[in-house]
Amino acid sequence: MKRKFLQELKIEGMTKEVIDQIMAENGRDIEREKAKNKEKNKKLIEKYSLKEAMKSLGVIDPDYLIFKHGGIEKFCFDEEGEPLMVEEILKVYRESFPYIFNQEYPNKISLVQGEKMELSFTWRCVE
């Protein structure tokens, strides 16, 4: 809100002091909303950086793992919103819930035809 807007309303009893009070309250409202938006942005950054970190460590369903861990509030983040100690946390879940992780199973096949030839295939479990 602009001071000029209030002055142009020409409301009876609208003194400079009243305008100052209205402007001060409006300023507090704006700052309160900015703080809310900053907190929401911080939580979004934390959520998506945690999911990306989990995906880079082979988690197929990060949302489920976050749920099993007790929610995003149970994870630690640095000042930039990057998750801390994700690998250590995932070790426990990798043993308990191996099906939520990308698993690679090497499988070697040897063919004999004239010379011995070895082929390697890697199988991945992906949903």
Rank of each mutant, 00 (worst) to 15 (best):
I60C: 06
Q113I: 00
S49R: 15
Q21C: 09
A53C: 11
T122V: 11
L57V: 02
N37G: 08
E79F: 00
G58Q: 12
L111I: 05
D78Q: 02
E31M: 06
K43W: 01
F77S: 04
M54H: 02
Y99D: 14
E104A: 04
S110F: 03
Y48E: 15
K10H: 08
C76H: 12
F77C: 07
M23A: 10
A35Y: 06
M14E: 07
D29I: 04
I109Y: 08
K116Y: 04
V18S: 13
D61A: 10
M117P: 01
L111C: 01
S49Y: 09
D20L: 05
I89T: 14
D29A: 09
G13P: 03
S120W: 11
Q113K: 06
E17V: 02
Q113T: 02
G13C: 03
G13A: 08
S110T: 10
C125Y: 13
G58M: 12
D20G: 08
F75W: 06
I45G: 10
M117K: 12
K4G: 04
E46K: 04
K55L: 10
L57A: 09
K4A: 10
V126D: 15
S96Y: 08
G114P: 02
E39Q: 14
P83L: 07
E8M: 00
T122Q: 11
S120A: 07
K36F: 11
E33M: 12
